[in-house]
């Protein structure tokens, strides 16, 4: 066996050891994430809401969402959120909650909370007019 062949075999074993390490670490992280999701009750919720996966709930509203999108997915009248949140931005509804918060020098969490409340109010009014 010449030196070149020896080096090749050592390199192959080294690569195999590295790959085993990568696989073990990835599996550890993957299983950890699965466990976190399980502990948060995601899997139970997933099966419960399987049929309604196309709909989002007010609690799933995020600050990157635009008002046009929220109006569409929650079936809100176009001016409802504008009135409820007293929005004077000329780009409404083509503006995200986060962008609006920046423009109004407010915390995006505040705008988010107000939006969630407004959407919940609309939903409860629709159920009990």
């Amino acid at each position: 066996m010449n030196n070149q062949h020896k080096v090749k075999i050592i390199l192959q074993w080294a690569l195999l050891v590295i790959l085993t390490g990568v696989l073990a670490v990835s599996l550890y992280i993957f299983v950890g994430k699965l466990e976190t999701l399980r502990l948060h009750g995601y899997f139970r919720a997933r099966f419960r809401h399987q049929i309604t996966a196309q709909k989002i709930t007010p609690d799933q509203i995020r600050d990157w969402m635009t008002f046009r999108y929220l109006n569409m997915v929650f079936g809100l009248p176009p001016a409802y959120l504008q009135t409820a949140l007293n929005i004077k931005n000329i780009h409404y509804p083509n503006v995200s909650l986060e962008a609006l918060a920046k423009q109004q020098n407010q915390n995006s969490a505040q705008i988010l909370a107000k939006t969630v409340t407004a959407v919940k109010n609309f939903a409860s009014k629709s159920v009990n007019p």
Binding site: I29, F30, K33, L37, Y42, R46, H49, A53, Q54, Q60
Partner: peptide, 14 residues
Amino acid sequence: FGSNWEYVSQLSGG
């Protein structure tokens, strides 16, 4: 997965 895509997205990379 529809509106639950965020959870699946966390797992896909791994």
